Simulated assay, not measured.
Amino acid sequence: MSFLKDEGGQGAAEYILLFGGVIVIAIAALLIYRAYFSSNSGLNAASDINNVRGNIPANG
């Protein structure tokens, strides 16, 4: 009956659940922003990035 009190695998299971949750959130974010980076949408990520870079003041 000592195997019922053994909690050695509990930490590993918690890490697996944690990493699984992070992966699910990352996939959800990719699906949400997929339309922004696709070429057939009305949004243009390349010009947006260039606009942001052009509006940043130069150091010095």
Rank of each mutant, 00 (worst) to 15 (best):
G60D: 04
L18W: 12
R34Q: 12
E14W: 11
R34Y: 09
R53M: 13
A58V: 09
S38T: 13
N59H: 09
L18V: 04
F37P: 00
E7G: 04
L4W: 12
N50L: 15
I23F: 14
I23L: 12
R53I: 06
R34I: 04
R53S: 06
L17N: 15
A29W: 13
A58M: 10
S47E: 12
N59E: 13
Q10S: 08
A28M: 10
L30M: 10
S47L: 14
S38W: 15
L43V: 10
V22G: 05
Y36A: 07
N40W: 15
N51K: 11
G9L: 05
A35V: 09
E14Q: 14
V24H: 06
S39C: 05
L18K: 11
R53A: 05
L43I: 08
E7F: 14
V22C: 11
L18S: 08
Y15N: 07
R34T: 02
N44H: 07
F37L: 00
F19A: 04
A35F: 08
G9D: 01
S39A: 13
I23N: 08
F19V: 10
V22L: 08
Y15F: 13
D6L: 01
F3S: 12
V22H: 07
A28S: 10
G11V: 06
S38I: 07
G21W: 02
M1G: 05
A29Q: 15
S41G: 01
G9F: 04
A58G: 05
R53K: 10
A12D: 12
S41N: 04
F19L: 11
L31E: 13
N51E: 09
A45R: 14
V52S: 02
E14M: 10
N40P: 00
Y36K: 15
A45C: 11
A12L: 08
R34H: 11
N50M: 08
S47Q: 14
I56H: 04
N55L: 03
A13T: 05
N59P: 05
G60K: 01
F3C: 07
L43T: 15
N50Q: 09
N55K: 06
S41V: 02
A58N: 12
S41T: 00
A28K: 08
I32S: 07
I16F: 11
G60A: 07
S38P: 02
R34D: 03
I56T: 03
A26C: 09
S41E: 03
P57L: 05
M1K: 15
S47T: 14
A45P: 03
V22P: 02
R34S: 09
G20A: 01
A45F: 08
S2H: 14
G42S: 00
D48F: 14
L18M: 12
G8M: 07
A45Q: 06
Y15P: 01
I23A: 14
A28F: 09
L18C: 04
D6S: 00
I27E: 04
P57K: 03
I16L: 08
M1N: 08
I56R: 00
S2T: 06
L43E: 12
S41D: 00
V52Q: 00
N44S: 04
D48A: 10
L17P: 01
A29D: 12
D6A: 04
S2L: 11
Y33C: 06
L17C: 13
G21K: 02
I25G: 08
I56L: 03
N44W: 01
G11D: 05
I25M: 10
N40Y: 11
A35T: 12
Y15L: 12
I16N: 11
G60Q: 04
F37E: 00
P57N: 06
A28Y: 03
